[in-house]
Design a protein around this nucleic acid. Structure first.
Lengths: 119, 119, 119, 119
DNA sequence: GTGGTCTAGACCACC
DNA sequence: GTGGTCTAGACCACA
């Protein structure tokens, strides 16, 4: 089973979670990831939902399918994941973050203080 | 016209945008904001969508409706907006931001450099 | 209703068919194509199947979605379709064709005769 | 090892490949073809898949099984393959080919040029 | 056993 | 009204 947030699609969260596990080293290049239906059972989710996650990751060249055998982690999967996340961060999160900081009139110093504390 | 992001509802983005303009001082207490239909034409959006934005803001006590006349900015609107944004920022955005920074292995120094440049 | 071949996925055939109709000029840039559920009813197919067709075409930049309104033909859709088909032809069909011709020991002259007759 | 296309079954491609080699004269009437397990190792494929290829060819009277010894090329195998291919070519490939050529608006002259170059 | 596709039907957010 | 997601369950081809 797995807990799902309501703001993102379940299939997205499953894909993200798998990426996390690849980044953490749990799955490495060439490793077989859980089969669609096995994963569906694990997470208590319909197999179509898993399928969609896997298709998405396949399109992003993170996993590949060996017919009749299963899905496997592709070479450089970690790099691709990191790159994609970096992209999201710099193009979406960071600008919004800056925008909010400015609107809230949080000064540069305040912000740096804030970040120091929290890390 | 206005560009809309795909991750948030259009009505949300319109409401947010109006709040931004209130915070910036473009609209002050007692000012009339654009009529629903005018706004709809400006933004190239169905008027029902504008209506929903305005209703949302009315519920948050940021604007009020004078029937047959239009919507007007309420007293202390800026404060209410700021308070709500602060809340969102510290409870949602900041934690997520920190999380991403850590995942991407962006160092404290990198981050501070980044923020200095961009502001 | 629509007749489907068994060798290709239904969703593929539906996407292809829509492309054909774009190429034929039935749908032009900016036109709204039938809504997912309307199309589903038209073709006697589940709406998920139509959805998949449309998603595929959206990814290929042939159609786009206006939220809450429907799917619309994008600019240069015809060009993109033609390019994609050309690609398929030269990278898949033509080589296989040549291969078969050689195996069957059909001479250049025979072949040209054949093509002249049939066109 | 061998590269497999995704549009046809692997077992099909293996059978086709073997036929190609028979046509080319690499295997003649009475020759023993590679054993199932040897072939499986060569192609990096499950032996069941090879088995299915061989069964298919056996049914078409192209090879035969001598129990405990192996599979052997039958008499007139080449002729049977050729006949079957001719059939496929004229009933399926050629019409589709013509259809695509017309869709892509490739002129008769272009086509002939193309075929001259490639052969 | 593996993926892949399709259906029927539900529920949701958004316009 | 529009798309978008999910479920449950079925069926198929392929390895």
């Amino acid at each position: 089973m797995m807990e799902f947030k309501s703001n993102k699609g379940i299939f997205q969260q499953i894909a993200d979670n798998l990426c996390d596990r690849i980044l953490s080293g749990e799955f490495k290049t060439g490793d077989k990831i859980p089969s669609v239906r096995e994963q569906a059972a694990n997470l208590g989710v319909n197999h179509n939902t898993i399928m969609r996650s896997y298709m998405e990751l396949q399109q992003k060249d993170i996993i590949e399918n060996k017919r009749g055998v299963g899905f496997f982690v592709k070479e450089d999967a970690s790099d691709k994941i990191m790159e994609s996340r970096r992209n999201d961060f710099f193009k979406q999160m960071l600008p919004e973050f800056i925008h909010q900081v400015e609107l809230l009139k949080i000064t540069k110093l305040d912000l740096i203080q804030l970040l120091k504390k929290l890390k």
